[in-house]
């Protein structure tokens, strides 16, 4: 079976996100006001073959834990659907 995982990785709340902060500061130049905060993370799509939903979940979770995110600085969550 083919699955599509959509993974979101975000820097931990307590961490300074200089990229987000810089974007937040500059949105005023296109006349967007009221911006309180911007946090920038990653969105990763993985298409994979797996025997079952559980198998796919396990594979994606392992990828997230071991490579795609670093638990010291980021958290992740993902959704899985049949592709």
């Amino acid at each position: 079976m083919k699955f599509l995982a959509e993974i979101e990785i975000m820097p931990h709340k307590e961490l300074l996100d200089p990229q987000g902060k810089t974007v937040a500061k500059n949105l005023k130049y296109i006349n967007i006001d009221g911006v309180e905060d911007v946090r920038i993370g990653k969105h990763i799509k993985i298409t994979l073959e797996a025997d079952s939903q559980d198998d796919a979940t396990e594979k994606v979770k392992t990828a997230c834990e071991k490579v795609l995110s670093n638990p010291i600085m980021e958290s992740f969550h993902f959704t899985l659907s049949e592709a």
Binding site: P18, T22, I72
Partner: peptide
């Protein structure tokens, strides 16, 4: 750090 041989991580400079 990423390989787990040293603790912690290096993040983007606060000045970007």
């Amino acid at each position: 750090c990423e390989a787990g041989l040293l603790p912690g991580v290096l993040l983007a400079n606060s000045s970007q």
